[in-house]
Design a protein around this nucleic acid. Sequence first.
DNA 1: TCGACTCGCACGTTTGAAGCGT
DNA 2: AACGCTTCAAACGTGCGAGTCG
Length: 356
Amino acid sequence: MEKQQIVLGNRDSGAVSGAAPAFFVILKQQQGNGKSDQGILVANRDACALASSVSTPLKSKIKTCLPADCTSGSITVTLDNNSMWNEFYHRSTEMILTKQGRRMFPYCRYWITGLDSNLKYILVMDISPVDNHRYKWNGRWWEPSGKAEPHVLGRVFIHPESPSTGQYWMHQPVSFYKLKLTNNTLDQEGHIILHSMHRYLPRLHLVPADKATEVIQLNGPDVHTFTFPQTEFFAVTAYQNIQITQLKIDYNPFAKGFRDDGLNSRPQRDMKQNSSSEHEGGSISSSPSNLGRPIETDGLDLQQRDLLDSSFSGQNAMDIDLEKESFNAERDFLGFLEADLPFSDMPILKQEVSER
DNA sequence: TCGACTCGCACGTTTGAAGCGT
DNA sequence: AACGCTTCAAACGTGCGAGTCG
């Protein structure tokens, strides 16, 4: 499937707050892999249902590793990159929203077991609001700041390989790295529409393909839904928490240019700026970036940063398949971290007040 | 004035076509 | 002709920071 064309059908307004109206989404899949075109209708009656059961107090996230497994019936879904998600979760994960759509990082990747090998399944991911609050970052933590905007319903992401057999889904991790988030309510690309400064939780829905005729009801009896509290995140248009920024830079291969050892790292840029300003006869820079840098460096534990730098910077250079190898290596690394440095023993990260 | 947001930029990664040798 | 390897450029994915807007 190259792209999901999404036609919204809403008997009400297209966005809801509070009680959910009858609502459905028509997804026309453009198959690029020889599979026949298939239209799928997803009825998402509970799309605005708050995932409050997983909501945790903002200031009391205990530094324990949340479980990677979630079971529904005989089916077990394991969050493959659980360690990374936990790393982010303990600092309150943020995901960037852009007009053209931004990928999630970390993204959701699952191992699935317990499926019928011969049965075909459709994998659907949606992202639901955790509560009815709008949030703001006070420099140390997220705090409620007013009432939430109405959630935009009907945007789901159907895994491009859907429908495939249970055997297919179970023999490899299932990645949703192509899922994109946007704050553009007029988006025509089929990205998932979210509101900035709101709190969300991704949900995985497993739908038996033979039961999915023209209408898929995501809360139907044959649909298995899986959620992982550690994948909860705050949608933002610009990062609020410096620690999250640093984690993204350290872990995301695409952000390598912003690592401390990169030419485009802030210290390097600051040096360049200073030298250039000196060449130009300018005064010594006193930009916020210069002033903020030491604090930002401290934002992530130095011991951990050293490990990250030595482990990932070198390792990533040898990556053949970053999607798999790099992240698996990171998982292994984080597993090592958790084994040798339980959270209770790890140096406490300072919650620095943002320089903004 | 301030916070949220947008946009262009530099940098790194990915991907696929082109060229070359076997 | 077919295959495998290397090179290279375009496309894409990042965070940053200046500017804009309400």
